[in-house]
Structure formats: C-alpha cells, structure tokens
Design a protein around this nucleic acid. Structure first.
Lengths: 256, 256
DNA sequence: CGCAAGATTGAAACGTATCAAGTTGGGTGG
DNA sequence: CCACCCAACTTGATACGTTTCAATCTTGCG
C-alpha cells in the first residue's frame, strides 16, 4: 500500500488535489492543523509541474516569492561566493522547505537546483504569512518548520567542523539515512540523488577524498557502495565513526 | 553625542523604558513598525537584569520560553555533541536574536553564554507569536529577523568550508567588523569579546593556528593586534585574503 | 560499440594538528 | 608597590591527513 515509490505519472493528478491527501502531510506545513484550517492553507498552495534534473526553482537575486516543498525528488541549494566558487548549502528531500534563504533580505542568496526529476508544491510567501497570522496553529507550525530547516543547517555546520574526512562522510551518510527514514524510505538502503562532486562540495572535501572515504567504509564492511546506491550494513559502527555515540558503553563500574 | 559606549549604570533605568528609546530599534524586532504597534510589542518585552560574564541565558534541553536580544555585550551559543565536544554555533552582538535554535523542536539545542557583562531583552515566544499574528508588519519583521539569523549561520558555514586557515580568519575578522559597523561601532577597530580558543572552535581550527594567523596578518600589515583589541589597517587586502573580491580588477580588455 | 562524464586509485607536496615550551598580562596578596 | 600566580596567548618542531595532479577504470548513453 505504501510501496510504488516509482514515478507513476497518473498519480500526479491525484496527488495535486490537496495537502489532505499528501503522504508528507505530517512532516510539512499542514502538521497539527485541523481540517478547516487545512482548507485555508490548501487554497494558497499551488502545485507546479514536474521538474527535470538541473532545472531551477529560483536563482540568486530573485525576489522572495514563494516557499517550495518537493513532493518527490531532491534539490540542492547553492550559493556562489564573490570569487565565483559554488558552495552547496543544503540538500532538500521531500517534505523539506526550500527558499528560506530569502527571508532575511527578501531576495534569494542561493539558487535551488533539481538533482533528479521532481515535483514541488509552491506556497506564495505573502499569503502564507497572512494566513498564518490568522491561524495560530499554522503560525506555530510555520515557525516550527523554519526551525527544523535551521536545525538541518546546524547539522551541516557540525559536519563541516569535524576535522577528519571520514567523520564527515560517516555523519553525512548517517544523517541522510535518518532523513530518508523520516519520509518513509529505508534508512539502510537508498540512492544518492547527488554526485560525488556535490557531496565533496557539501562536506568541504576534495572529490577524491569522498571517493576514498566510501571505499574505506566499504572495505571495513560498514557500507556497500554500488555507484550511487548505498547500503548501510552496520549502522552502529557508522554512528560510532561519526562520533554520534560514546566510544562504547565501556567499563561498567565494579562497585554497588 | 553618539559616544559614551562605556557602561553607564544610570543609563539602564532610562533604556529599559521601551524599545522606542532603544538605539538598536531599527535593527531589532521593532524595525518598520509604527508607534501603536510598537506599544503592543513593548508590552510583552521584558528587560532582564544585567548579566555577568559566563552567565547563561538558557541551557541545552530547556524548553523554548523566550527569545533574547542583547542590548549591550556579547554572547556565544554552544552545542555539545554526543561525545561531549563543545561546538560554538554562533556569536551574538547587540541587536541579534538569541534562542532561535529551539524553534524546531521546542527545546534548546544550544546553551547561550555571556562572553562579557551584558544586558538583554527577553521576549516571550508565545506572546510574540500571537502578537505577530495580529500585526502583519511585526509578522514580517519577525520572519525577517529570523532570516537574518539564518544568513549569519550561512556565513559561518561559508567560513568553515574554506580550506585555508588564513581565509577563515580573514573572513571572520571581516565579518565581525561589518557586524560592528551595523550596530554603530567602528568596523576598523574593535575589541574581540571572545578568546582565541572560542575563535578557533568557531572556525574549526586549532587555537594555535588562530594565533599564528593573527601574527601573520599583523606581519603583513593588514591588521594590528593588541591582545583582544583588533585594528584593521588594510580592509581591502583583508577582503582579498577572504576571497570576498575578485583577485583584483585585473586585465582591462584592450579592445573597444 | 565508442565516447564522455563520473568515479576510483596512486604518489607527492602542502598545511594544519599536535605536543611542548616559552611569553605576556591582569589580578591577588604579601 | 612589588612579587607572584594563573590563564591566555604566542612560538617552535614534528607527524599526520588531505589536497593536488595524474592516470586508470567504470558507467550511462547516443
């Protein structure tokens, strides 16, 4: 019943009906609001046509018009520094808000690029802000979703500050698995929507270092790599490499 | 007229009257709202007692109660990873919101520590959210201020992803100068509110590397260092080191 | 089938972490 | 007022890990 994660073109017409029928409902803006409120929200949500790989939702400098949420597919947001270097600021899986980078000054600092074919919901910001003002629960949820976006940014920061390449990679794979789990996919087996180069950029490493890291993790029996298909064989050891757990639950104190 | 940045105890009684008399008004939540709205906001803002160095505004796990804004002084927010490592997530100068880390899940992921003596305004989140719902301009400004906080986080991220220590340091000093300028201080001369160790932690470097970086910048005549007092002598070259400008406005094309 | 883009592997150069030893400066007590 | 102390900072030498450059291998696609 929850299978069929393949693109089924006919589903789209069905899905576009409303948030009420969306499988991501509880992860997205509608979480925790009632049927009547949902209708108010639904009224302002536009469902865009499917997008192709490398299409952009918005570009740097575009005025903030809408927030976007992928229903299917994945995106990256990329900032470009003054000297022309691209930096990937985030990856966005289904249910995760895209476009918050423009909140501060009303214009996008990043561009949002589809990593795969995708289809997205569009929520005009002006209207969202206005409706949220009238519906406290939506207001609450909006702030919550914004906050969750900030948490993902902070997780990214915590990756970048790790000194060892292997820690960063382990943390990245572990985190990605968690995010897939949340949206109902397997956390142990998934297909990376992005290239090694994108991963390297995101992690602040050279592309070769990422490749070597994958190889190393595979040699150690922690993951299995088949191109972009990743299988996590030893989740616990991955977490340990990422320093997500105390080294081990070690010396049990011998007194008492 | 705009001098006297020293702590003048008697000023506090005056300042606490209201946002309307606060010099940070246009940088903070009140920006862009009218007198009547300002009163509504003022009603829910509490001004806390001055704080001492190393005092905490909140701790990890505390439920989200309020947002805070320093009027004077500086704070750091620190997250602690599962393996006990502390990571400085941000520094907060006057006018910058503190406490947004709890928006996502309703509990703080960081602790906020005063780096200097300070005094702060406290805005209960529940009430702020409710009042913002009724005042579109405040709603707008709230989202804007949140967005600006995210922009600072993104700047931090862009620092961490720079590979060379000197770039990170240059970027850090340059950015800090800008932030001081915004709040009406000198961008060329300021006193660092944080230790070398804090800077190193924030930049993902060893503290010795930060120290060496300062020395190097000083030898090159770009900055002058006297303990925590920093003077930026050559702003443009600093920006260049930080790759904030094209290497130089080079070869003027010889045609035309 | 063959090409091009993406990914892996190898060897060498570089930069930073680390360990260890000074140095400075602010605060305290004699 | 000086001597002392401690914390913060600076400086030096070495080891390690990652970047870089280069070559090979794989995959997807026309």
């Amino acid at each position: 019943m929850a299978a069929m994660s393949d693109l089924a073109p006919l589903d789209i017409a069905h899905l576009r009906k409303s948030c009420a029928h969306c499988s991501l409902q509880q992860l997205c803006l509608p979480a925790g609001i009632d049927a009547e409120e949902l209708q108010r929200l639904d009224d302002i949500v536009r469902v865009r046509r499917p997008m192709q790989r490398n299409e952009r939702l918005f570009r740097i400098g575009d005025p903030l018009g809408s927030l976007f949420i992928a229903r299917e597919g994945a995106f990256k947001t990329v900032s470009v520094s003054e000297d022309g270097e691209e930096q990937i600021v985030g990856f966005h899986l289904p249910g995760e808000l895209i476009g918050l980078d423009a909140l501060g000054h009303g214009a996008h600092r990043c561009e949002a690029v589809a990593l795969t074919s995708a289809n997205v919901c569009e929520v005009p910001m002006e209207q969202l802000s206005a409706v949220a003002g009238q519906l406290p629960r939506l207001q609450h949820q909006l702030l919550r979703v914004i906050g969750q976006g900030m948490e993902r940014d902070q997780d990214h920061l915590n990756i970048l500050v790790r000194r060892q390449a292997n820690e960063r990679i382990a943390l990245f794979l572990h985190g990605l698995g968690e995010r897939y789990r949340v949206i109902g996919h397997s956390a142990e087996q998934f297909k990376l929507p992005m290239s090694r180069e994108d991963i390297a950029n995101y992690l602040g490493l050279a592309l070769e270092t990422v490749s070597r890291g994958f190889t190393r993790l595979q040699e150690d029996g922690i993951i299995a790599v088949h191109g972009r298909l990743i299988e996590i064989s030893d989740r616990q050891q991955l977490a340990q490499l990422a320093h997500l757990e105390g080294p081990q639950p070690p010396l049990r104190v011998a007194r008492g």
